[in-house]
């Protein structure tokens, strides 16, 4: 167990060093691409808190991601950037409130119902922005200025610079990864996992299952909102499509591709899927066809994701250390 931990720590340290050095090694395009990948990795990380640890397959996380973008657009004045000290907390608070309402309703259901209900509520937010005029309808809204990080009129970090923007997103990813790690290791996280493996037992042991799940759902929605806030700022544009369920499903693919129930898994999955998409887009006109086939192959051939692949490729000794993580993937439906 300890040596497995040190393996992971080593891997994390190497990745971190590479991520820190990236803006000095790669061109502007790649720095922007990396920032985009980091933000999607945050979305996958947030989703994994409920899917991987909570066993709750949420299909509305893209709606939280996109809603945050709309909130930033609403709060950005026409003449300059919104102050991050106001816009970010308001965004997180509003998304948390929306997630709490959706969570209270959805968590009354189990298993496949939960999937359908979260998908439906996610689409409700999509149609809210798509069909009404509050957010420019199907055209979406432009965000001409990135949020300002300033104190007493002095700009602390200039988000218009690609390099600073990248480092801010990297810091956010590290912060949220540390938060998820701490949550999962805490009694709260143990209760969440206990409720996933056997809800009835968790209930009879006195765990407040509903409240634990609701808290996990809201926290995870807020992480998704943090990612969506910066994502909208990066593109300078937000449209209803970002809230759609195809985006939520893609985030699920990232989580499963990387491997459930780990911190690095969804991050690796997001990077792998984005890299793959970029490769496919440049090679095939019908790249979505190939993407679909790859997802189908993933379901049948590699249900444990890259984590499982790693377990298959590593030498015997290290394989034993990885094994528990692979076995943690549920083989049979956990929801009854």
């Amino acid at each position: 167990m300890t040596s497995r931990l040190s393996h992971q720590t080593l891997l994390a340290a190497l990745l971190l060093a590479a991520a820190t050095a990236l803006p000095f090694l790669a061109g502007d395009y790649y720095v922007q691409f990396a920032a985009k990948a980091i933000l999607l990795a945050m979305l996958a990380l947030s989703l994994n808190l409920v899917v991987g640890y909570g066993g709750l397959v949420s299909m509305c996380h893209a709606a939280f991601f996109g809603l945050a973008g709309y909130l930033l657009a609403f709060m950005t004045p026409e003449s300059g950037g919104a102050s991050i000290w106001l816009s970010l907390p308001v965004t997180l608070a509003v998304v948390a409130a929306v997630a709490a309402v959706i969570g209270v309703l959805s968590l009354r259901t189990r298993g496949v119902y939960f999937i359908m209900v979260t998908l439906a509520f996610g689409e409700m937010l999509f149609y809210l922005f798509h069909d009404t005029k509050i957010g420019g309808g199907s055209d979406g809204l432009y965000i001409y200025f990135k949020p300002e990080i300033a104190l007493a009129g002095v700009t602390l970090v200039d988000l218009e610079s690609h390099r600073s923007f990248y480092y801010v997103t990297l810091a956010c990813l590290l912060g949220t990864a540390a938060l998820v790690r701490a949550l999962v290791g805490s009694p709260f996280g143990h209760a969440l996992v206990a409720a996933k493996s056997n809800e009835r037992r968790a209930l009879s042991l006195g765990f407040p299952v509903f409240r634990v799940r609701l808290a996990a759902f809201v926290i995870s929605a807020m992480i998704a909102a943090l990612a969506g806030f910066f994502s909208a700022a990066q593109f300078g544009f937000i449209a209803p499509q970002v809230l759609g369920w195809h985006m939520s499903a893609t985030a699920l693919v990232m989580v499963v591709l990387g491997g459930l129930s780990s911190i690095l898994g969804p991050i690796a999955g997001a990077l792998a899927l984005l890299g793959l998409e970029e490769l496919l887009k440049s090679s095939f006109e019908q790249w979505k066809l190939v993407k679909g086939l790859i997802i189908i192959a993933l379901v049948f051939a590699l249900p444990g994701g890259l984590q499982q692949l790693l377990g298959l490729l590593l030498p015997e000794r290290a394989k034993d250390e990885i094994k528990p993580a692979v076995n943690a993937v549920p083989e049979v439906a956990p929801h009854v």
Binding site: V51, V57, V112, A249, L252, V299, A333, H335
Partner: peptide
């Protein structure tokens, strides 16, 4: 599990 079914149908 439902997650695999969701991914397959996606």
């Amino acid at each position: 599990d439902h997650l695999a079914q969701v991914l397959l149908s996606f």
